[in-house]
Amino acid sequence: MASNALPPQPIPSSHPLAPAPFVVRSQTAETPDTHTLVLSPSDGHAVPPALPGQFNMLYVFGVGEAAISLSGDPSDATAVVHTVRNAGPITAAIAQSPPGQTVGIRGPYGRGWPIDQAKGRDVVLVAGGLGLPPLRPVLYGLLAHRERYGRIEVIYGARTPKDLVYYGQIQQWRLRPDIRFQVTVDAADRSWYGDVGLVTARIPDTRFEPGNSVAFLCGPEIMMKYAARDLEARGIPQSSIWLSMERNMKCAVAVCGHCQFGPAFVCRDGPVFRYDVVRDWLATREL
């Protein structure tokens, strides 16, 4: 039977869903299942400007597409950096992309961290597991203009010492006198001389002026829920606490509805939300 269907048409490159080709410049293993990719546009153009906290859709041709947070220095216009954990077939294909491989990227998407609100205030960053990569661009930004901010306190937790990402860079940050970078793990063997316990256990020891601080949280949702509660108990108002939410994003342009979170779409209205906006949603089961 003859078909009246039009033949498939290529998506114009200006279409919001059309990925642009990027080439993997380097791939670094952070942990056995987590890799950091540095990618540059294959046409030599500049990288689209992005804000800390935004994400890209990374597409391995023939395999699939996944939303991955930007984790590099936002002032670097030559490359984008993504840290990807192998959590399934698509992220495995992305994480294991070798140097020279072409990957499709569209973005950046979403609302990032409100760094402007941190000016003149103490800043508390709380990261759990793979929550550090989305917060690393914030730290780059804060340190690039260190004089604009008060105390900078970072608490980073992971499951075990072997699950810590950016280990070498963390050692350098911990040597800096102008920030305090606490690292803790959930469990460890005797080769680890650092802290063991949840990130929330480090909050009482964190120094900030409660009425003049902002907190940015990223990690497992339950960790953020407890950390936000404890920071609020230490005096930071809900309106000064920000969380990066994670949901299954597909279109990234608020059309498909996969990432709906309460009345919001995480891809468009987030992924960074103010705590007082999402607090009740966090308490809603299976939302």
Partner: peptide, 17 residues
């Protein structure tokens, strides 16, 4: 109570989810 709560969260193995 705080240590019990921490233990409960640790049991969830939140980073492995």
């Amino acid at each position: 109570a705080q240590r019990l709560e921490n233990t409960q969260i640790q049991l969830l193995d939140i980073h492995g989810l």
